[in-house]
């Protein structure tokens, strides 16, 4: 069944939200979601890289040989990441220092490589553009939603505006344990709310079938690698 343009676009926002449903690229989601400002910046950076790399890879999909496709994808993605790094360092130095290492780590963000492998290398330029945009927006929405809650409780502000008076903050929400906790609770709330409506919400670790580049090392992936090796031995 051919998907309409609108379906391709909204796929990343709802049905296959990269963060909530596929749990991809959650390092930056957890680390950056301390302030809304940082979360918006990270979302914009990731969306830019995702759209750029999707378009370029889709353009090159007939030229790139199948065997060396992963390194080729990585080079394209790394180029866009370097661009983003340079632009933010030059024009938004505050954002650059608050994102820190996570800006460079977009290179190994499973969302970007996953979309390159799963979508851009098989579909037309227009569709890949929409897919990248949808996935990027899906990521940004989730990271911003978590950031609103974390910033509110950890520093009492939303986007710098003070809401809770000083002295009533829960510092731990802004630190590492708070990130894990909120993410887990958010997921549980979604499962509960959607379960009541009779819909199923089923977060799985990473598996959208893009095994070729996934670094999660779930059982399927490990079985896959073992099988590959066996066929190699037979040869």
């Amino acid at each position: 069944m051919k998907k309409s343009k609108w379906q391709i676009f909204t796929n990343g926002i709802f049905k296959e939200n990269p963060v909530l449903i596929l749990l991809l690229g959650c390092c930056s989601v957890l680390a950056i979601s301390v302030t809304v400002q940082g979360a918006l910046g990270m979302g914009a950076a990731l969306t830019f890289v995702l759209v750029g790399s999707n378009v370029v890879i889709s353009l090159l999909r007939k030229i790139i040989p199948d065997k060396v496709r992963i390194p080729c994808f990585i080079v394209v993605i790394a180029t866009f990441v370097t661009l983003v790094e340079m632009i933010t360092e030059a024009f938004l130095p505050d954002l650059y220092s608050s994102l820190g290492i996570f800006l460079a780590l977009i290179v190994v963000n499973c969302i970007v490589l996953g979309r390159a492998e799963m979508f851009a290398s098989k579909n037309s330029v227009g569709d890949s553009f929409l897919d990248g945009l949808g996935m990027g927006i899906g990521y940004t929405v989730v990271i911003c939603a978590i950031a609103v809650v974390r910033e509110l409780f950890a520093s009492g502000t939303i986007y710098g505006l003070r809401i809770i008076p000083e002295g009533y903050q829960i510092g731990i929400i802004g630190q590492t344990p708070g990130g894990f906790l909120l993410f887990g609770v958010a997921m549980a709330v979604l499962i509960y709310a959607l379960g009541k409506k009779g819909k199923k919400f089923d977060p799985r670790i990473g598996c959208d079938g893009s095994c070729g580049n996934c670094n999660l090392g779930c059982e399927n992936r490990i079985q896959d690698i073992k099988k590959e090796e066996e066929t190699e031995v037979e040869k």
């Binding site: 344990p177 894990f180 993410f183 887990g184 997921m187 549980a188 709330v189 509960y192 977060p203």
Partner: peptide
């Protein structure tokens, strides 16, 4: 029930990191 699977794993990760 709603915490089964991933959510409880993430909560446990929070406690470990604490």
């Amino acid at each position: 029930k709603c915490f089964e699977g991933l959510p409880i794993t993430l909560v446990a990760a929070a406690l470990t990191s604490m």
